[in-house]
Amino acid sequence: MLKIEDLTVSYDGKTLAIDNINTEIKQGEFVGIIGSSGSGKSTLLKSINLLVTPLSGKVYIDDVDITKLNNSQLRNIRRQIGFIFQDYNLIEKSTVIDNVLIGRLGYKSSLKSFFGLFNDEDYESASNALRQVGLSKKMFERAEELSGGQKQRVAIAKTLCQKPKIILADEPVSSLDIATSQSIMDYFKVINDEKNITIMINLHDVNLAKKYCHRIIALKNGKILYDGKVGDLRDELLKELYSQE
């Protein structure tokens, strides 16, 4: 469903953040991306929904090259791609339900959403999503009142509201303690198992990646060092991955 061809990204035009990456990902896979900081994990995810514009290369989603799309086509594709950030990026002063409803924006006309008008269906799907992450009770609280783990669950609910085919998660548990991290990862696993949503997740904790992911992509200096089953990952490779030159 997702195919990346010869993808190259550079922020300053000189150094390459992503250096000629090729890979293909099937519907329902749970892919962990590992690598030290600055290896291009974040950039890779962000170029899949074009938050970062690649220098060259192609990104196919369901055989459509999204780098060629115009703005409104791009928005239609984006709504099928959930994105979860390390720092949650909720609208802190808005209520939890408003934050989840943001997931519906891709399906709304400008005018209706400008006045904050959502229909019953939208509210239904928002409250369902909140139930799935166990936060029904917090529905009308402001996002700023929640703990870190709760905020990340709201972000997941928001993404579920988009009815995505794929969820990209950029270090979603790096700011959380071990127990909360596990519970957030459990939610990803349930979503992956039950809804067959593809998940690509950046992790800096290799043990979490080994525990939850089916497949690992290891990046170093913007290049793929390893791309394969989690079981075939060798310790020597990890040593090389995290070594400093």
Binding site: L51, N71, R75, L105, S113
Partner: peptide, 27 residues
């Protein structure tokens, strides 16, 4: 407003009016 905050609204497929309404105007 952090760039990622704006990105988090853009990444659900929102257009620029919606980004304004849901990211800038709430407070």
């Amino acid at each position: 407003i952090k760039e990622n905050q704006l990105n988090s609204i853009k990444s659900v497929g929102a257009n620029s009016t919606q980004v304004l309404r849901y990211c800038v105007l709430p407070h």
